[in-house]
Design a protein around this nucleic acid. Structure first.
Length: 113
DNA sequence: CACGTGACATATC
DNA sequence: CGATATGCCACGT
């Protein structure tokens, strides 16, 4: 069922460490669903307010917050990020500095030999 | 079954 | 940096 993809996506987002961010596309890739960034957004939209998923660490690939700049959600997301050390300026984040680089990439690299 | 929508992305100009 | 075009796909209508 599609429930599997949903869980896979949620699981992947939970791996993003505090103080780091990941794009919708990156989450989709790591979840085994390449080119399906929109699906990540779709499932995040389904979250209940009681979840423990760090949804605020998921942003657009260009570094922008996905919500409209004048929305309450955008403000909340910025606040969460700032509180964990991620600098946010005009609803934008410096990806070079804060993009999450999953350890699994290194592990896979080492397994090549 | 045909369209429109959307917490997205990438390529080109 | 912005603007356009195209890809993507689950869902609702």
């Amino acid at each position: 069922m599609s429930d599997q993809r949903k869980l896979q996506i949620y699981h992947t987002i939970k791996l993003v460490p505090e103080g780091k961010v990941a794009s919708y596309a990156q989450i989709a890739d790591l979840a085994g669903l390449p080119r399906r960034a929109r699906l990540v957004g779709y499932y995040l939209k389904q979250l209940e307010s009681t979840n423990t998923i760090p949804w605020h660490r998921v942003i657009k690939s260009n570094g922008e917050i996905a919500f409209p700049n004048d929305s309450e959600m955008a403000k909340k997301q910025c606040q969460y990020l700032l509180s964990e050390g991620v600098s946010v300026t005009n609803f934008r984040i410096n990806m070079k500095k804060y993009q999450w680089m999953p350890e699994i990439v290194d592990i896979l690299y080492n397994l090549k030999f």
